[in-house]
């Protein structure tokens, strides 16, 4: 099973990944599957039994397309084809803050420890590191900064709140 790091109630832990990614041409599968946005929207059946459904979004896919469909979805995987491609940060924030998605938001692709803090702030809660990071290293990187200056999807109090401006 590929390594997966999960963030839950502020704690990072290593978990088993039960999801299997299903290509658009692949037949219906048992268990938990991740399918493309196109396959989800086409309404094509992808699973048998009580397996969970995840949807895979490339950076150019607009999360707004999931509006109204999120109750069918347990997981949204946001791809970083290159770690320099920052579109998934926006996608994650919109999923959490605008679409109110409460399921798993997973970072997949070229996912490096040095972005762990930004990802957690934008609402990611599952990480599939490409750099072999241990859960300890990941947690240390994500928790590096004692203060933040902005509001984001993680509910952390920004500096202007900590300073008692309210």
């Amino acid at each position: 099973m590929p390594m997966l790091i999960r963030l839950s109630d502020g704690v990072f832990s290593q978990v088993q990944d039960d999801f299997v990614r299903l290509g658009d041409e692949e037949p219906v599968a048992e268990g938990d599957v991740i399918i493309s946005l196109g396959r989800l929207l086409s309404g094509q059946v992808a699973r048998v039994g009580g397996g969970r459904i995840g949807v895979w979004l490339e950076p150019a896919d607009e999360v707004e397309a999931l509006a109204g469909r999120l109750d069918e979805v347990d997981l949204v995987a946001l791809a970083f084809p290159k770690f320099r491609d920052g579109r998934a940060f926006t996608s994650a924030r919109l999923l959490r803050e605008r679409l109110g998605f409460t399921g798993e938001v997973r970072a997949v692709g070229d996912v490096l420890r040095d972005q762990a803090g930004f990802m957690a702030r934008c609402g990611f809660d599952a990480f599939s590191p490409a750099d072999g990071s241990t859960v300890e290293a990941w947690a240390a990187a994500a928790g590096r900064h004692r203060h933040v200056y902005q509001r984001a999807a993680d509910g952390r109090a920004p500096a202007f709140v900590e300073r008692g401006s309210f």
């Binding site: 320099r84 920052g86 940060f89 924030r93 803090g117 702030r121 933040v148 200056y149």
Partner: peptide
């Protein structure tokens, strides 16, 4: 500074 969403524009 260290904006979580806008550091990889």
């Amino acid at each position: 500074s260290l904006h979580p969403e806008f550091s990889f524009l």
